[in-house]
Lab assay of single mutants.
Amino acid sequence: TGYYDVLGVKPDASDNELKKAYRKMALKFHPDKNPDGAEQFKQISQAYEVLSDEKKRQIYDQ
């Protein structure tokens, strides 16, 4: 599964769309709200870390 799929956004998503999707998913799977969501929360955080950084995103998109 790709990072875009993890966040539920298209590859041409804007920074604002990425942030909005990340916040929505992070709230849904945060371990405090969803004890079984810890692994998914890590994936969401990693996806956002890469896609929100312009240089990392360019490398990922290659």
Rank of each mutant, 00 (worst) to 15 (best):
T1I: 14
H30S: 11
D12W: 13
K55A: 11
V6Y: 03
K20S: 12
D61K: 02
Y22P: 01
K20F: 09
Y48M: 06
L27T: 12
A21N: 03
D53N: 09
K10G: 10
I44W: 00
K20H: 10
K24M: 10
I44R: 00
S14Q: 04
D32F: 06
A38R: 09
H30E: 03
K20T: 13
K55V: 12
G8Q: 06
L51Y: 00
P31D: 11
A47M: 03
E17F: 00
A21H: 03
H30K: 07
Y60R: 04
I59L: 12
N16W: 14
I44D: 02
D36Q: 12
S45V: 15
E54I: 13
R57T: 03
E49D: 10
S52R: 10
A26F: 14
I59D: 12
K56W: 05
K10I: 03
E39K: 07
M25A: 10
D32I: 08
K56N: 07
I59G: 07
Y60N: 05
F29S: 04
K56S: 11
F29V: 05
Y3W: 11
F41P: 01
D12N: 11
E54F: 14
V9L: 08
I44N: 01
N16M: 14
A38W: 11
V6A: 03
K33F: 14
E17A: 06
D12H: 10
N16H: 14
K42D: 07
M25H: 06
Q58V: 11
D61T: 05
I44P: 01
L51I: 05
P11Q: 10
D5A: 12
E49N: 08
N16Y: 13
Q43M: 15
G37W: 12
E17I: 04
D53A: 07
A47S: 05
A21Y: 03
K42V: 08
F41M: 11
D5V: 07
K55H: 13
Y4E: 00
K10Y: 07
F41V: 01
L7F: 02
P31T: 09
P35G: 05
L27Q: 14
I59S: 10
E49R: 12
T1D: 08
N34Y: 07
D5M: 08
P31R: 03
T1Y: 15
L18E: 00
K20V: 14
V6I: 15
Y3A: 03
D32T: 10
E49P: 03
G8S: 02
I59C: 12
K55I: 10
L51P: 01
D53Q: 07
K28H: 06
Q58C: 12
P11G: 06
G2L: 12
E17K: 02
Q40C: 14
Q62H: 11
K24W: 05
L51C: 04
D5K: 10
V50L: 05
D36N: 12
G37S: 11
Y48K: 02
D36R: 09
D15K: 14
F29T: 03
E49L: 08
V6S: 04
N34W: 08
L27M: 13
A21K: 01
E39A: 09
Y60T: 04
A13M: 00
K24E: 15
H30F: 05
E39F: 07
V50I: 13
K28L: 15
N16L: 14
N16S: 13
S45W: 13
K55R: 14
S45N: 11
